[in-house]
Design a protein around this nucleic acid. Structure first.
Lengths: 135, 135
DNA sequence: CTACATCCTCCAGTCACTGGAGGATCAAGC
DNA sequence: GCTTGATCCTCCAGTGACTGGAGGATGTAG
């Protein structure tokens, strides 16, 4: 298994180099092993972990939540109620956001088509955003 | 039309008092009129504008995008192509996020039910988040 | 007239990055 | 063996969008 340098890890996960170092600083990624000259090296497990982190972040989990989830997963004998609780807390939030996004998407779709070339006075974008969520 | 104090505006829009002042600082809300003693006063137009801003923010528009949208809407004779363009740029993003949230929601739902009481070794939360979006 | 809520300004802190300066190291080509 | 360019290192300052608190003035109800 070939060791990866930080730049390659970045390419494989879509995270920026600086972001990976930042994750190490805050303990979200483990302290990386180093070459003799001090360069960080990574393996496949790091690729998986970082992909997990990036996905989690984009889906709205905080770094602290991800830390809990990871440290939970590293204690395979304890029960997973805690992980499920974090997930469930997130579920309601996710559903609410989806509902509002759905409304917005439909309105934006209409607007993006109708609006082009018209005058601002007839533009629906502003009204649309003002009204989403006041359902 | 009764004038509102900042606290009442906050209550009606869900924004915090400090956030409203912050929006004034960065020019997202206009400089509020003041009473003799220096307190900010607001009217119905401010309620609408702030609701628009809060919704826009929660739906992922940046404060700069909202500023553009607002200043566009204040020039009703110019064409609304620019507003539509901002909306369209957002549309693709919104759709991508919805798709991933949908996958996540379905998985979290399964997991939140199955997982409770099990051992971490069998827990799907981690796998689920690691895989969403890698499809 | 005394509480107490609400307002004011100013400023420091938070979260999750992002970017850059200044310098070392490495791999490839001449 | 040497230069060039990419990549790496550390450290630190900045960003966006707030959030919270200190310290003090003002308004209102009993």
């Amino acid at each position: 298994m070939a060791m990866l340098m930080i730049g390659e890890l970045a390419r494989r996960t879509g995270a920026k180099v600086n972001t990976i170092r930042f994750y190490e600083d805050i303990g979200l990624m483990p302290l990386a092993a180093r070459t003799d000259s001090g360069r960080r090296t990574y393996g496949e497990a790091d690729v998986r972990r970082l992909k997990f982190i990036r996905n989690g972040r984009e889906l709205g989990f905080s770094t602290e939540e991800l830390k809990s989830l990871i440290s939970l997963s590293e204690q395979p004998d304890r029960d997973c109620g805690a992980a499920a609780a974090i997930a469930r807390r997130h579920l309601a939030d996710v559903e609410a956001r989806m509902a509002r996004l759905a409304v917005l998407r439909n309105e934006l779709e209409k607007v993006a088509v109708n609006c082009d070339g018209g005058r601002m006075a007839d533009c629906q974008v502003i009204e649309t955003i003002a009204d989403v969520g006041s359902h």
